[in-house]
Computed example of a mutant assay.
Amino acid sequence: MARELTAAQRRVIGAAEPVTGRLRGSAAVLDRLVKLGFAFRHPRPPHDCFLTPAGQRARTAPPEPPASHEPGPAPRPAPDGVFAARTGEESEPPADPAARAREVRAAWQGLLELRRMTRADGDTARPCAWERAHLVRAAALALEAAGHVPGLAGRGGYVVRESPQPEAVEVRVAEPAGTEAGADRELALCAGALEAAGWQVSEHGDRRGRRVVIASPPRR
């Protein structure tokens, strides 16, 4: 279906708000994206359009190379410019910490707006459907927005990963984390931040005796 997109439609998709997926464009382009299944129109006024999962994939997919009978160099995917929450698996710190802090604040405000827009009661204190569909990204954003620092490929801070438990993430203190008491305090702070963001949290011990936090967005 991505091949049906025109240049104008791709521009609108590419300019969608990073977290909420809200679209801005002419009525004709938005209507066409809705018909193609790349967007949906919110039932509540002002009836803004948002990307569907297909639209999200179209935004991050590299453009298809033009047809050619002669082999050429393999196309290199263009950067999509989409905000990505840091999970602690990264190998390098942000190049500009101040700019990163601004991006995180904007992304968190966008997520709160998405909560408001997608709940009949407009409640922003509870996770929304997008967060349940992107558990690791959502939990990592909540932690980073609360001021916690993710680890770097296992060095300091925290790491957010998928959990063996269904519909949950696992948060653990990265290694080395200093004293055991310090690691426990840091983990407790992460648990408190997720709980304040509307997640259900519980602490457990793994097979190596280390404490981990299991967090999941409640279905209510």
Rank of each mutant, 00 (worst) to 15 (best):
P73F: 00
A74N: 14
A74Y: 14
P75V: 01
P75C: 03
R76T: 10
P77G: 12
P77W: 08
P77I: 06
A78F: 02
A78N: 08
A78G: 13
P79W: 00
P79N: 07
P79L: 05
P79M: 01
G81Q: 06
G81C: 06
F83M: 05
F83R: 05
A84M: 12
A84N: 01
R86H: 01
T87G: 03
G88F: 08
E89K: 14
E90Q: 09
E90N: 06
E90V: 01
E90S: 04
E90R: 06
S91D: 15
E92M: 14
P93G: 10
P93D: 09
P93A: 15
P94E: 07
P94H: 04
A95E: 15
A95T: 15
D96K: 04
P97V: 15
P97N: 14
A98T: 12
A98E: 14
A99Q: 12
A99C: 08
R100C: 11
A101T: 13
A101G: 08
R102A: 15
V104T: 11
V104E: 08
A107R: 02
A107Q: 03
A107L: 02
W108K: 09
Q109V: 00
Q109M: 10
G110D: 14
L112Y: 04
L112S: 09
L112V: 02
E113M: 08
E113H: 12
L114P: 01
R116N: 06
R116M: 05
M117W: 15
M117R: 15
T118W: 02
R119Q: 13
D121R: 05
G122C: 09
T124Y: 08
R126V: 15
R126L: 14
P127C: 06
P127V: 01
C128E: 11
C128T: 01
C128N: 13
A129D: 08
A129C: 04
A129Q: 10
W130F: 09
W130H: 08
W130I: 01
R132F: 01
R132E: 12
R132S: 14
A133F: 02
A133D: 11
H134W: 07
H134Q: 11
V136S: 05
V136N: 04
A138N: 03
A140P: 06
A140D: 05
L141I: 11
A142F: 06
A142G: 03
L143A: 05
L143M: 03
E144G: 09
E144C: 10
A145W: 06
G147A: 08
G147P: 08
G147L: 03
H148W: 00
V149N: 09
P150H: 03
G151A: 09
L152K: 04
L152F: 00
A153H: 08
G154L: 07
R155A: 13
R155L: 12
R155M: 12
G157K: 06
G157C: 09
G157D: 11
V160F: 03
R161I: 01
R161P: 03
E162Y: 10
P164W: 12
P164K: 01
Q165T: 09
E167Y: 11
A168N: 06
V169E: 14
E170V: 12
E170Q: 15
E170P: 00
